[in-house]
């Protein structure tokens, strides 16, 4: 079972829900922190380092002696990463999406692909939770390949439950994170901003066609607009987490709420039941 925890708006509580769900799971499970621009599940899921390695994408390198300056590489590139000036290609690695098109179409075979490091993948073991996170290097703009590399890890997980902490927003890194998941949990806060960005996320998840439901976080803040919207749109509300100062304090201390505030354990246990219902009965909202 693969479940992504996503949202439109940042700061609604994706990581909070992810790590507390992980901790309250009965069996060993895997958390993939796909928020590669700011992975922070590791602040809560602390444990021993299992492995760490650098991650590279393949970018083109030009053999100027073979290049005739025909410009085909620059025309092929959808990402404006190659300019041909005075008969010579200039490659901008930071813009390259590593599609390999330029090397395929170069009539002179003057393009070879060489590794270009963009980030680090770290694997930790925190009790029964295996945490895999991607961390994009500062200044690098290309999150998707690293998200895919983190997701690639699931191949070695032998049917374990996987939680994916998604990046905020609704652009490519989020879409790549939720793609091929069995269910998506959208964390929303009950405010005007929260509703606006939830609607964007709902549109995106519907487009991808994955069962989903909503967790209302900081319930009691704002008003009932998110709950009303979910009811009208036929979206199941999987759980509500109260706007409670004790939760904020525990979270700010780097504590798991399910550890330090026992009254909330049942909330996350019930959330698991709702998620399983979503996955196995396909009872959620579809596209």
């Amino acid at each position: 079972m693969k479940v992504a925890i996503a949202s439109g708006k940042g700061g609604t509580g994706k990581t909070f829900v992810t790590v507390n769900l992980a901790r309250s799971h009965m069996h060993p499970l895997v958390v993939l922190d796909c928020d590669v621009e700011e992975p922070n599940s590791n602040l809560f899921l602390t444990g021993e380092l299992v492995a760490r390695h650098r991650y590279s994408i393949m970018v083109p390198q030009v053999d100027e002696s073979a290049c005739t300056g025909c410009r085909i590489c620059a025309d092929v590139c959808e990402f404006n990463a190659i300019a041909v000036i005075a008969g010579k290609p200039l490659v901008f690695e930071d813009l390259c999406h590593a599609c390999g098109g330029c090397a395929v179409f170069c009539p002179q075979e003057a393009m070879t692909e060489v590794p270009h490091e963009i980030g680090t993948i770290t694997i930790r073991q925190a009790g029964t939770v295996r945490l895999v996170e991607g961390l994009l290097d500062v200044g690098k703009a290309l999150a998707v390949p690293l998200v895919r590399a983190v997701k690639n890890y699931e191949k070695s997980t032998e049917g374990k439950t996987i939680l994916l902490d998604a990046p905020p927003g609704t652009s490519c890194p989020m879409v790549w994170t939720i793609g091929d998941c069995d269910a998506v949990v959208l964390v929303a806060e009950p405010t005007a901003f929260g509703l606006h960005d939830l609607q964007l996320a709902v549109d995106t998840v519907r487009e991808v066609g994955i069962p989903f439901g909503v967790v209302i976080n900081k319930d009691g803040l704002g008003d009932a607009r998110v709950a009303d919207y979910c009811q009208e749109a036929g979206i199941p509300i999987l759980g509500k987490i109260p706007h409670d100062r004790q939760i904020a304090q525990a979270y700010a201390n780097g504590d798991m709420v399910v550890d330090s505030l026992p009254q909330y354990r049942q909330l996350f246990t019930r959330l698991w039941t709702s998620i399983e219902h979503l996955v196995f009965s396909k009872g959620g909202s579809h596209g």
Binding site: A74, F79, N80, A81, A83, V84, I85, F92, L95, A141
Partner: peptide
């Protein structure tokens, strides 16, 4: 309106 690489294309 380019998503990225506007400066490079403009320069060309």
């Amino acid at each position: 309106q380019a998503a990225q690489g506007a400066g490079i294309q403009s320069a060309q």
